[in-house]
């Protein structure tokens, strides 16, 4: 995994969130998934399943407890992808 891989993960997440939330706010890496994008637990878990299939990884749901921003989610995906 390289820096460009990380950037690609971040870009994919931003694109997907833009479609999923219909947010008028621009999806930036540091936008808060819950307080700013109003993603509820069901939407988040569905999004996680999509991400898992996209990157062929499994994301433990207890690993999500520290995830609040798009960047933190990208960090988690990158970390799991790097070790799988």
């Amino acid at each position: 995994m390289t820096d460009s891989d990380y950037d690609e993960i971040l870009r994919l997440l931003c694109d997907r969130l833009s479609t999923l939330t219909n947010s008028e706010l621009p999806i930036t890496p540091d936008i808060n998934l819950i307080t700013q994008l109003s993603i509820d637990s069901i939407k988040l878990l569905n999004l996680i399943m999509e991400i898992e299939d996209t990157f062929d990884i499994s994301i433990p749901i207890n690993g999500l407890t520290d995830v609040q921003t798009v960047r933190q989610l990208a960090d988690l995906v990158y970390k799991i992808k790097s070790t799988s």
């Binding site: 878990l45 399943m49 299939d53 062929d56 990884i57 499994s58 994301i59 433990p60 749901i61 207890n62 690993g63 799988s84």
Partner: peptide, 20 residues
């Protein structure tokens, strides 16, 4: 680590087992 598979979806379950 807690991994979920889609409800009663055995294709999804096997996919997650393979990834482990």
């Amino acid at each position: 680590d807690i991994i979920r598979f889609k409800h009663n979806d055995m294709v999804d379950m096997e996919k997650r087992l393979r990834r482990l």
